[in-house]
Amino acid sequence: MNRPLPLGWLLAAVILVVVPAALWLFGSAYAARLAQLVLITALLAAALNLLIGTAGLLSLDTVVYYGFGAYLTAILSTNYGTTLPTEILAAAAAGALLGGLIGWPLVRLASIFFAVATMGLATIFHTTVLNWVDLTRGPMGYRGIPAFKLGEFTIDGWAGNYYVIAVVVLGGVWIVHRLTHSYYGNAMRAAREDEDCARAMGLSPHALKLQAYAVHASLMSVAGALYAHANNFLSPDNFVLLESGLTLTAVVVGGLGSLPGAFIGALVVVLVPELLRPLGNLRAFGFGMILFLSILFLPRGLWSEVSSLAFVRRHLFREGWLKR
């Protein structure tokens, strides 16, 4: 327990130093946008990983909380000129509250019933966003969302945006890391594996699952808040069931229960479809194929491959063949 995470520092260094440096040297506005999207997707994947990998709830409702946070932020910042800390806190709190209310009846459901119910939620959300025109501006989309504001200061340019997103995403992933790599995470895993047995050990599976659900909702809502500013345009099309599938693909590709995997998975699901873009509109086709192939050939996700490399390297260091 509470193992130090040298890997975490490595990850933070890559995200905060290496990627921005590379973008600055060789990048384009397009590459910077993709980098931001990868980070936001990684936060979604990490939150979903908490729910599926640790609490064992297979869910397809990513777009509900992601979209909720995005529209909430769009409305707040456009109408009230709110600043970044307020927006993040508002998205986190409102997302947790909404997740708690919805999760209360839902997390009791057995696996497949839960999955279908969350799928239903995704569709209800999409229909609402599409038709509640007064609030969401409907199918035309929400245009002109202002840039991030910190106090009086407006953050524009890709570097500012990138760093705001990177810091918030790392914070969110750190929360998931803490929750899963602690006794709290053990309690959740126990509730996942055998509910009756967990109860006999004095744990309340319902409370644990509900908390996991509320936290995942809160983090996804924060991811939505970032997306609203980063993209400064929201459309109901961003929040269809297929996008939940995208996050699920990132989790499966990266490896269930693995946080570094969330970043790798996000990288794959954002970049591969972009690479396929010259061939036409093959985005959904692309990630359908990724999902299928990774289930078939990488049942433990990509990260287990990478971590076995890390294992070998550790042993090489220990044998003194390579000096650190």
């Binding site: 803490r178 709290y184 309690a187 126990a190 936290v215």
Partner: peptide, 17 residues
Amino acid sequence: VSVGAIGRAGVSFAGAL
């Protein structure tokens, strides 16, 4: 085994963070 100990001592969300 820790699950038994957790059941006794309790865990909280805040404590994990």
